[in-house]
């Protein structure tokens, strides 16, 4: 179950952009809403106004998740701003998923909240996709992981292997990436806590997630 990621009341999802952070965050929030009473998801992506949590806001709300979005998300004034209600995750007893923008640029926004995350208890996860250029070799991935820690002032507690090739993902793709994910975990000293797969590629030990990315065609 993806909800195993909840060891504390706050989960933070970071990584190189395009690794599937939003897909993980939305899946986690939806699964958490089935198990916990009060679940929030905060869209803290100040880097990119395309393909973000806001695309899934309707479905999330329908299933009882409190969705904290920047005020003008998905409009033409989608300026880099934080959701005004974001501090709710620290002041209420909710379980929260924070979906952060890509790379260290996106993670910089966490810096100002690092102490508050520490005070409520958090787990920050690095989403890894071996098929993304910045995760293509272990050195790049290590740089990216350390740069995010330095920018955010927070420490990773796990790596989520979300390796995929979009619509061309099959089992061989998932297996090909497994070794790379393990090597990255070993080198970084951050444990590999989960490998994801869609239903059709599921294998023993994986965590099945849904594809919630906005479909254009």
């Amino acid at each position: 179950m993806i909800t195993e990621l909840f060891k504390h009341k706050a989960v933070i999802i970071c990584g190189h952009f395009g690794t599937g952070k939003t897909n993980i965050a939305v899946n986690l929030a939806l699964a958490a809403a089935d198990r916990f009473a009060n679940v929030c998801i905060a869209d803290l992506d100040t880097v990119n106004p395309y393909f973000r949590t806001a695309d899934n806001a309707e479905e999330l709300r329908r299933r009882g998740v409190n969705v904290l979005l920047p005020q003008f998300a998905n409009t033409n004034v989608d300026i880099p701003s934080l959701p005004p209600s974001f501090p709710l995750i620290f002041t209420t007893d909710c379980c929260s998923v924070t979906d952060v923008g890509g790379d260290e640029e996106g993670a910089a926004v966490l810096r100002g909240f690092a102490e508050r995350y520490e005070s409520i208890g958090y787990d920050m996860y690095y989403v890894f996709n071996a098929f993304r250029p910045e995760n293509a070799n272990t050195d790049y991935s290590l740089y990216s992981l350390r740069a995010i820690e330095a920018a955010s002032g927070l420490k990773f507690s796990g790596i989520i292997n979300n390796s995929n090739l979009g619509a061309e993902t099959d089992r061989s793709v998932v297996f090909a990436a497994q070794k790379k994910a393990e090597e990255f975990a070993k080198e970084s000293g951050v444990p590999l806590v989960m490998t994801t797969a869609f239903e059709k590629n599921a294998f023993p030990g994986c965590t099945v997630i849904e594809d919630v990315t906005k479909k254009l065609f």
Partner: peptide, 8 residues
């Protein structure tokens, strides 16, 4: 791995 997952 010859294929990469990339943005346009």
């Amino acid at each position: 791995m010859s294929k990469m997952l990339m943005k346009g």
